[in-house]
Simulated assay, not measured.
Amino acid sequence: MGNSSSLLTQYDLEDLQNHCSNLYSQREIIALYERFCQLDRTSKGFISADEFMGVPEFAVNPLCQRLLKMLEGLNFKEFIALLSAFSARATKDDKLKFIFRVYDTDGNGKVTSSDMLQVLRDLSGNFLTDEQRQSVLNQALEQAGYTVDSALTLLDFKQVLGKADLKMDVEVPVD
Results as ranks from 00 to 15, higher is better:
122 D>M: 11
4 S>T: 11
156 D>H: 09
122 D>H: 05
56 P>V: 12
91 T>R: 01
126 N>C: 04
117 L>D: 04
54 G>T: 04
60 V>F: 03
104 D>G: 08
56 P>W: 03
22 N>Q: 08
158 K>Y: 09
44 K>E: 08
66 R>W: 05
115 D>G: 03
9 T>L: 02
20 C>R: 02
162 G>K: 04
41 R>S: 14
55 V>L: 13
164 A>I: 00
38 Q>C: 07
98 F>L: 12
118 Q>N: 14
101 R>Y: 02
71 L>Y: 13
168 M>F: 10
116 M>D: 11
95 K>A: 02
73 G>M: 04
171 E>A: 10
149 D>Y: 03
119 V>I: 14
94 D>P: 07
89 R>I: 11
170 V>A: 07
30 I>E: 13
140 A>Y: 01
64 C>K: 12
15 D>K: 10
126 N>W: 04
45 G>I: 03
145 G>E: 05
149 D>I: 00
71 L>T: 11
35 R>L: 14
29 I>V: 02
12 D>S: 11
118 Q>R: 06
148 V>T: 12
51 E>N: 06
164 A>C: 08
80 I>Q: 06
72 E>N: 10
169 D>C: 09
169 D>N: 11
102 V>Q: 09
171 E>P: 02
141 L>I: 11
143 Q>L: 13
119 V>S: 10
29 I>M: 00
151 A>D: 13
54 G>F: 03
121 R>T: 12
125 G>E: 07
166 L>S: 01
25 S>G: 10
44 K>W: 01
60 V>R: 11
135 S>I: 02
37 C>P: 06
30 I>Q: 15
144 A>Y: 01
69 K>N: 14
62 P>H: 00
22 N>G: 07
34 E>A: 14
61 N>V: 02
60 V>T: 14
5 S>R: 01
12 D>H: 13
48 S>Y: 05
102 V>P: 12
1 M>P: 08
159 Q>M: 10
137 L>V: 13
152 L>K: 04
38 Q>F: 03
47 I>N: 07
31 A>S: 14
89 R>E: 12
130 D>K: 00
73 G>S: 03
124 S>G: 05
156 D>I: 04
15 D>V: 14
118 Q>G: 08
66 R>S: 12
104 D>A: 08
128 L>Q: 12
102 V>C: 12
128 L>S: 14
171 E>S: 09
134 Q>H: 07
13 L>V: 03
141 L>A: 05
34 E>Q: 08
155 L>Q: 13
43 S>V: 02
141 L>S: 12
33 Y>G: 15
109 G>S: 06
144 A>T: 02
65 Q>F: 03
67 L>N: 05
107 G>V: 13
175 D>N: 12
84 S>M: 06
38 Q>V: 09
34 E>C: 11
114 S>I: 13
21 S>T: 08
104 D>V: 05
100 F>L: 06
42 T>K: 01
86 F>L: 01
